[in-house]
């Protein structure tokens, strides 16, 4: 459980740990089997996620993942945990079922920006509202990569995609603000350029008791970058480097303008859903006088 993990979170991440060692412990297949595009940010994000598991010394047999559709969704298959790779956007709902059915599981819901903010937006905001102890990791690649680079709810205004050939006419979501508004108790943002920082916030999110949301800025130089003047992976890493600012209490509004604000943006403890539900089980069992399993006239209970 998260509380146990939190007390174990003493070992510092070793940013120099050998990737093969990490994969052996936290992965399911050797690194050469990873099928991300060359230079894709997802490999860096997966590395950070495995380092976060390592930092927390997590027993991977007690980790359950949920995922939907997107470039990222293959990541669940590369990690040495139980996974339900189901419908597009339903990850947060599947994760809710897993965690409530077995609160001892550490539940990680990998999502794309299409999952979190478009087709599965409803599930994600309601998981946040419930404050169920699930970590949503949202990989933001500015659109739909798996289908070839169409615009989505995170595509920057004016940028070019397969379905915005004249420039994106819509405004994107600020996913973190949305999740704070929905009641998420832990919200953070980082980028794959800031790999050590990303590892740190992922570990903190997984250890957090309650709903945690991490937006991972994960570049797609192949589909978005090349249409927007950044055709190489390094172009986009530099873009994250030059356009990010770390959140501090004194950060002025004008300093945030047009930047990716990184860091833990919101943290506010609130009763966790499965713990609250455990109280309901006790109350209901007491009212049933230990006769729950015998046929009751439930008409009176409803």
């Amino acid at each position: 459980m998260s509380t146990v993990i939190a007390t174990q979170a003493v070992a510092k991440p070793n940013p120099m740990a050998n990737l093969d060692e990490l994969v052996e412990q936290y992965g399911r297949v050797p690194a050469e089997h990873f099928r991300y595009c060359p230079g894709c940010g997802l490999g860096m994000a997966q590395s950070a996620l495995m380092r976060a598991f390592q930092r927390l010394q997590i027993d991977m047999s007690q980790v359950a993942g949920a995922g939907g559709s997107g470039c990222y969704s293959i990541m669940g298959h590369y990690l040495n945990m139980g996974v339900l790779h189901g419908g597009h956007g339903r990850g947060a709902a599947m994760a809710t079922g897993m965690k409530l059915a077995n609160p001892h599981l550490t539940v990680v819901n990998l999502q794309g920006d299409g999952d979190s903010l478009s087709i599965g937006g409803n599930h994600t905001i309601h998981a946040a509202r419930r404050n169920i102890d699930v970590t949503v990791v949202m990989f933001n690649n500015f659109g739909y990569g798996d289908t070839g680079g169409q615009y989505g709810a995170t595509t920057p205004k004016g940028s070019f995609t397969e379905t915005s050939p004249y420039g994106m006419p819509e405004e994107p979501f600020d996913a973190c603000k949305l999740m704070i508004g929905a009641g998420a108790t832990f919200v953070a943002r980082s980028t794959v350029y800031h790999a050590v920082h990303l590892t740190k916030v992922l570990a903190e999110a997984i250890a957090w008791k309650g709903f945690s949301f991490v937006e991972v800025m994960q570049h797609c130089h192949v589909l978005w970058g090349k249409r927007n003047g950044m055709p190489k992976a390094t172009d986009m890493l530099n873009y994250y480097r030059d356009n990010s600012v770390f959140s501090t209490p004194n950060l002025k509004r004008e300093e945030q303008e047009g930047k990716f604000v990184l860091g833990v943006l919101h943290k506010q403890a609130r009763p966790e859903f499965t713990e609250e539900y455990a109280k309901i089980r006790k109350l209901a069992a007491a009212r049933a006088g230990g006769q729950g399993l015998s046929p009751l006239n439930t008409g009176g209970a409803v």
Binding site: A64, G82, G86, A93, M94, T96, G97, L100, A101, N122
Partner: peptide
Amino acid sequence: VQMEDEMGSFAAAMGASCAGV
């Protein structure tokens, strides 16, 4: 658990089933 819609209800049931319940 009362979910946000029917897709969510069925998906949550699938999640619980995978967790052995």
